[in-house]
Structure formats: structure tokens, C-alpha cells
Design a protein around this nucleic acid. Structure first.
Lengths: 186, 186
DNA sequence: ACCTGAACACCGTTCAAGT
DNA sequence: ACCTGAACACCGTTCAAGT
């Protein structure tokens, strides 16, 4: 007979992790407060204690989670810019289930901070018109990931083509990234 | 006393138009079958006669509507490529309410045809590796529109800054488009 | 402070029935 | 062929109540 584990207390972090898991594995439309409660072994209403604005707050938190990034300055603004783009891409790729939110919700909270940090870091490193550059970089990352994830929802034939598609996405991204950086230094 | 108009018969097209109007004006989350029925002066259940797979079919149709584009070949592959990108951008910008669907749903039906046409047209016009180029173009369009629409949901201060943001988005797009085309011809 | 239970208004979808 | 009405299972959220 399995012993009943002491109940882990609910927290904003645990809620978000469980929500990401549901969205990534079953899709955003199947992420409901009730199912989320089930996954956390708690009544749905308990969630409201940690996210007072309910599902809207949850959606905001999920978008923020895959969209707020922290990166250390590199040896040049070129390297720093690449690091930001790669980090942004990875964060989005990790949770395709909430990509629609990430690409669509206006930046808030930690995401706004992330954008500001990126802009300041690049400006300090000597990149002119850093704010414009950051917008261009965000567009590049968003577009790359959108096309890549969209394509991964196409046919599902063999593992072989799967990995080939993965490698192509990486190559596309790095090639585009180089071109983007070159374009910025004019 | 207003005369009762003869009821316009329901159709797939009228349903999609009404749905786009609701999504753009009130947001995707407020687009429900029942509200859609109200807008069409019909019971929600009548919609199922025209869209047998119900709300899923509606979402697919909306994504397709803003994502399937038709463009005539220009005088060079460069001009043709630009025309495709501009047309794709306009279609997405026209209906920000369903942008999340458009960027996220795997291409189907008319959208797949649109991608195939674009690829063939550019290959015929002499662009090498047309399929890769089309993926790059789609990523560029997706990213540009995502960032632009996301930003339009930020602060809402003055009409002055509004139009300035609009013009900047246009300038950003055209600048990026030129760079993209140049990158393709290497 | 944290969670539950019952309740309410709303949702997508089915199915038999109307015309 | 096209639409309705009633019904069902499910949803987000409130609120009073428990501990």
C-alpha cells in the first residue's frame, strides 16, 4: 500500500511548470483550470490564491516564462547579440505549446526588463541604434521559431527526416543570424 | 416599425467574415460559437451545418484565410519575391485577432497551395534553392508582423506616436526586405 | 494563509425534431 | 437542405465555509 506523500505546497512556480507541461503535451486548448488543478492534485479553485487574476494571469505568466531571458555580455556586441538571439530561440523552442501566446501577447514584466537589458547591453557595447536592432533581432527569432515549429506539425514520417529537419532549422538559424549581424554593422 | 429583412442564407464565407470581425474587435478568446451565431442572427448549432468539424474547422479556416495569398509573377524574381512578402504581410496585418492561429497552425489546404505556388514561381524565375528561400521569406514576414502587432498592444498614448509607429514598421519592413533579397542572390 | 464545495453563467457539441 | 430546441459534459469564476 503506497504511503500518502506529504502534500507539496502549491506555488506560482509549480503551477506554471504544470501548465507548461500540459500545454506542450496536449495543446493550449486543453489547458484548463480544472485539468491544471488535477495535475497539481488540488481543486482548481486553489490556483486563484496564487494567481489572483485567474486564467488571464496564468496566460501572462506562461508568455513571460518563455520570453524573458537573461544573457551575459560577450567579448563584442556581435557576440552578445548572437547570444541573445540564441537564448531567445531556445526559450521559445522549449515550449512550443505556448508559442502562440509568446508571439502575440504584448511584452510585460520580466519580458520588458529583458528587452531593456538587451538594448542597454548592446548600446553600451557600441552598437548604434540599439533599440531598432533589438526589434529586428526579436522579429528574426520569432519568425524562425514560428516557421520551424509550424513545420514540425506537418507530416510525421520517419525519425530520419525528423532529425534532418532539426539540423536544417539550426543551419537556417545560424546562417540567418550571421546575415542579420552583418546587416546591423553597416 | 422596421421591416424584417429576408434572411440572408448562411454560408461558409459569411461565417468566416463574422468570425474575423469578432476576433479582431474583441479578441480570439471571445470568439465563441454562440456569439458567432448571434452575430449571424442564427442559432449557434446552425454553423455546424456549414463547418462540420465545428470550432476546430473554424479555426483552421481563419488561419487559412489570413495565410493563403495569390500573387502574380513580376519582372524579375526579386520583384516577385518582394510582392509575395508584401502580400503576406498585408494579409496578416489585416486581421491581428487571428495572428496567433496564423503563426502557429501548420499550413493546410489553400495555404499549402500558396506556398507551393510561391516556390514554383520563384524557381521558374531563376531563384536557386527556392524552397529554402520561401521558408526564409515566411520567417521574415511572420517575425515582422508579430513584433509590429505585439508593439501596437503596448501603451496607447497619442495618435501622433501611433502613426509614427506605423511608419516605422513600414520602413523596418522594407529595409529588412531589401536586405533579405540581397542575401538570397548570393 | 491556504484550500474546498457548492453554485452560477457560459461554453462546445450531439441529436432528434421541425420546415 | 437547412435550421432549431433541448440536453449533456465541461468550463472560468465567486463566495462562503472550513482548517
Amino acid at each position: 500500500m503506497p504511503a500518502k506523500r506529504p502534500p507539496v505546497p502549491l506555488s506560482r512556480e509549480r503551477i506554471i511548470d504544470a501548465a507548461l507541461h500540459i500545454a506542450d503535451s496536449q495543446g493550449l486548448r486543453r489547458l484548463t483550470m480544472r485539468r491544471l488543478g488535477d495535475a497539481l492534485e488540488v481543486e482548481a479553485m486553489a490556483i486563484y490564491h496564487h494567481l489572483p487574476r485567474g486564467k488571464d494571469a496564468l496566460m501572462d505568466a506562461l508568455a513571460e516564462h518563455v520570453t524573458a531571458v537573461r544573457v551575459e555580455a560577450g567579448s563584442s556586441w556581435q557576440e552578445t547579440a548572437k547570444a541573445w538571439c540564441r537564448a531567445g530561440r531556445e526559450a521559445l523552442r522549449d515550449h512550443p505549446g505556448v508559442l502562440a501566446l509568446a508571439l502575440t501577447k504584448p511584452p510585460k514584466g520580466a519580458t520588458t526588463v529583458s528587452i531593456r537589458d538587451q538594448t542597454e547591453q548592446l548600446a553600451d557595447a557600441g552598437l548604434p541604434a540599439a533599440a531598432d536592432a533589438v526589434r529586428t533581432m526579436r522579429a528574426f527569432v520569432f519568425g524562425s521559431v514560428a516557421v520551424e515549429v509550424q513545420q514540425s506539425g506537418w507530416a510525421d514520417p520517419e525519425v530520419d527526416t525528423w532529425t534532418r529537419r532539426d539540423e536544417r532549422a539550426d543551419a537556417d538559424f545560424e546562417r540567418g543570424l550571421d546575415a542579420l549581424i552583418k546587416g546591423l554593422q553597416i
